[in-house]
Amino acid sequence: MESSPVTVTISALDAGHLTLPERLFVTDADSEKRTTVPSLSFLIQHCAPGKTRPTRMLFDLGVKRDIERYTPSQQAHIAERQPVIVSPDCRESLLSGSATITPKDIDLVMLSHVHWDHVGTPSDFSSATFLVGAGTLDLLKNGDGPLYPADLFNDDELPSDRTIELPPVSLSGVGSGRPQRTRPSDSALARIAPYLDADIWTWRPRFTFSSTLDLFGDGSVTVIDTPGHLHGHVNLLCQVANSKYVYLGGDCCHDPRILAGDKGIAMYPDGRGGLRSVHVDTGAAATSLDRIRDFVESCQRPVETEVVVAHDGAWRERNKHRFWPGKL
């Protein structure tokens, strides 16, 4: 496995908690079991040769601290996920670290997707440029079919003049129908020029993945197209040492037992006479999981890959020392 000469540092951040009914997420579930889990955020620092300071990026922002800033339909959904814990949120966790990084020091924010428990409070990061998967702005404005109506999203969630959508990936369906990619504004492209070169972003096969994008152009942070959960859903593969990767899986699954193969993706009535899962496309989500498993299994010693998904409460309990200012 090839490695990058440039590595990044990653610190976990608490960004709120929510409560998940097990029966909606895993097969063979206890129908009464509900588990309060984190919605994790991650601070990624990329220090390129010749730079005087690292580029600082957040991956996901978790839960909003002000529930009233969600739409009424979102709030109705959130009522089914109680208890929801909003403190500490991403901003509070960043400021509570002993190091001196403030929200204004964040250069980039990448969202794995725009469900309510990942969008956080974007206005906290007034200096940041936002990076999202293709079709995300269309999704926020128009929704995507009866199971994902527009009122489940805030159409003004992200600042239009500071948001850049990644190029479309035909294999994930973007470009063959809604949601369609919104072309970035010139001002947004100019904002990221000191950190990234969007002109050279191209999706290419790498490792076991069919579509990957080299974010910084040096192999240190690879965006992985992971279709299935929601349009525009992406993961990150980060190299943190010569022989270690961290795979940030977002909502590729909501329970690590699914990734391990001990449980399957739960199906439940969709209210329209059919079945659905928590994913917009269950088959595509399962394929994405297969590719992640294949990647992890293909890693040979001394290479190590650690997979962290957004709602893994057991990982959080085991790794409190790796939260900011600690490192993964």
Rank of each mutant, 00 (worst) to 15 (best):
I164G: 05
D294G: 14
N154P: 02
S11D: 10
K33F: 09
P168Q: 06
D262I: 09
V37P: 00
D124I: 02
R291L: 09
L196T: 06
S176K: 11
G274W: 13
L171F: 12
D30K: 09
T102C: 06
R53L: 04
E22S: 09
P159R: 04
S112P: 07
D186I: 07
E80W: 03
D270I: 11
G143R: 00
D124F: 09
A99Q: 14
W201L: 12
T71H: 05
H321A: 13
S298Q: 12
T7S: 15
H311N: 15
R91A: 12
D225A: 15
S31L: 15
G62P: 02
H77V: 15
D117A: 12
M1W: 00
R272I: 05
K263N: 10
Q74W: 08
D255H: 15
L166D: 00
S220E: 07
F130G: 00
N319D: 02
D186W: 06
V307G: 03
S73E: 11
G232V: 03
Y247S: 02
G264V: 04
S31V: 14
D255P: 03
L166N: 00
S41G: 13
T282Q: 08
M110I: 14
F207W: 15
V119I: 15
N235R: 10
D89N: 15
H118T: 03
P269F: 11
S126I: 05
K33G: 03
L166A: 00
L196Y: 05
R183V: 14
T55Y: 06
H229P: 01
R272L: 13
P256G: 08
L94T: 01
P54S: 14
F209T: 02
R322A: 13
E304R: 13
D270Y: 06
P49E: 14
C238L: 10
D124W: 04
